[in-house]
């Protein structure tokens, strides 16, 4: 008995069992259910167990699907590029230009606080800025830059991507800052002693050493944007679509099998993307 209790397998599973149970019940089972239901049939008012490929046939046979998947990748790629640029710059500033540690922590917290507030409120708060009579248009008109209000500021791809960048840049800043703080400062001195300019040190020393952080940030941003439906719906005023919205529209129409099939395809796309990204980084080593 004592030997069993001391076995690391038993101990490990005893401690990890609540975690395993919750992940099984609310992650593995739901995904299995979605996969099963994706083969079911639906009538107007109920769903019927079956093994039919018609949901997938419809999905892959429709032009809309390809356009919507393309839009999803487009949002992910543009948001990724912008959050990486901004996130890297901010992390670089915090890690290498702020000299006092207290100041570093204070400014870092200043960047992270919005993460703990509501995303929906943060989206709503763009309305007074971007609306037809919003602050941006009023300012541009008063400066004489434009004569008529710009219509594409709100309810457009522009506002969707702006909101994504606003919500998710933090997911780049934190892991990149984390890896930058672990860079041995004597490497930078060595680079300078060897005659490297500040820019050369950045490109040839800091950037390569920051790659793991960039990868983790990338995984966060790409999956958040690809799985999103609410930002696109709210910021585009329901005028733009991505895969998440395709799913949520089907759900609203009670077309669960069709929503499930789209979900399975989305899940495979996301997991494939992650699998590719994970080839570049060992997450367990970075913690």
């Amino acid at each position: 008995m004592d030997r069993i209790l001391k076995s690391r397998n038993v101990m490990g599973w005893a401690q990890a069992s609540p975690l395993a149970l919750i992940l099984f019940g609310f992650l593995v089972l739901p995904i299995l259910t979605i996969t099963v239901v994706s083969f079911w049939r639906a009538t107007e008012f109920s769903i019927i167990p079956a093994f039919s490929l018609e949901n997938y046939a419809f999905l892959f046979g429709s032009d809309v699907t390809y356009r919507v998947f393309f839009a999803t990748f487009k949002y992910a790629a543009i948001t990724w590029a912008l959050t990486l640029g901004i996130g890297f710059t901010v992390a670089f500033y915090l890690a290498f230009h702020i000299r006092s540690q207290t100041m570093q922590i204070a400014l870092f917290l200043l960047c992270t606080i919005p993460f703990w507030t509501s995303n929906i409120i943060r989206m709503i708060s763009w309305i007074p800025f971007l609306g037809r009579n919003g602050i941006a248009n009023q300012t541009l008109i008063s400066w004489g830059v434009i004569d008529e209000p710009l219509e594409w500021l709100l309810y457009s791809d522009f506002s969707v991507i702006l909101a994504f960048v606003h919500l998710y840049t933090l997911f780049m800043v934190v892991p990149i800052f984390n890896t930058m703080m672990r860079i041995d400062r004597s490497l930078l001195e060595a680079a300078r002693d060897a005659g490297a300019s500040g820019f050369q040190t950045l490109v040839h020393v800091i950037f390569p050493l920051t790659k793991p952080g960039i990868m983790i940030g990338t995984i966060f941003v790409v999956t958040l944007v690809m799985g999103d439906f609410i930002t696109v719906r709210f910021m585009s005023g329901s005028q733009k679509a991505n895969v998440g919205r395709l799913i949520s529209n089907d759900i609203a129409l009670l077309q669960y099998p069709s929503a499930a099939a789209t979900s399975v395809v989305l899940l495979c796309t996301v997991l494939l993307t992650i699998a590719i990204l994970l080839r570049f980084v060992d997450i367990r080593k970075e913690l």
């Binding site: 992650l27 739901p30 979605i34 999956t223 690809m226 998440g244 949520s248 899940l267 996301v270």
Partner: peptide
Amino acid sequence: LVIPSILI
């Protein structure tokens, strides 16, 4: 962490 929330 990476699974789209709407799937859950």
